[in-house]
């Protein structure tokens, strides 16, 4: 189910928004204007990816610099071993909507 989160205008390009639901979700607005949503908590230890460094379609964790591909959730750089769960995003009438994935991320 798509749930409204916030106006896209609230997340400038190159920035992220932490959606504080039960399992928090990080929403990224890339420099190219794409919008991606992944679990906010790093799969390595306890850090918020919304606080991380966004470069292209990749986010670097602010604690130990694991890098995740926002499109697939894959680990691009350790120490994280497990991919991050990705969520479907749509921008409807200027509002970011996210469908929170039900299942755990697999090793796709």
């Amino acid at each position: 189910m798509m749930r409204p989160v916030c106006p896209l205008a609230d997340i400038p390009r190159g920035e992220a928004y932490r959606w504080a639901i039960d399992t928090p979700v990080a929403i990224f607005h890339t420099d190219d204007g794409e919008v991606y949503a992944v679990d906010d908590t790093c799969t390595h230890q306890d850090a918020s990816l919304a606080d991380g460094w966004l470069e292209g379609c990749e986010v670097e964790c602010p604690l130990h610099a694991s890098r995740f591909d926002l499109r697939t959730g894959q680990v691009d750089a350790p120490p994280a071993k497990k991919p991050i769960r990705t969520h479907r995003v749509e921008v409807i009438d200027g509002v970011v909507h996210v469908a929170v994935a039900e299942v755990e991320a697999g090793r796709s």
């Binding site: 919304a50 606080d51 991380g52 460094w53």
Partner: peptide
């Protein structure tokens, strides 16, 4: 201050 810290660190 992880977010700001990361910017400065870089």
């Amino acid at each position: 201050q992880p977010k700001l810290f990361t910017r400065w660190r870089r």
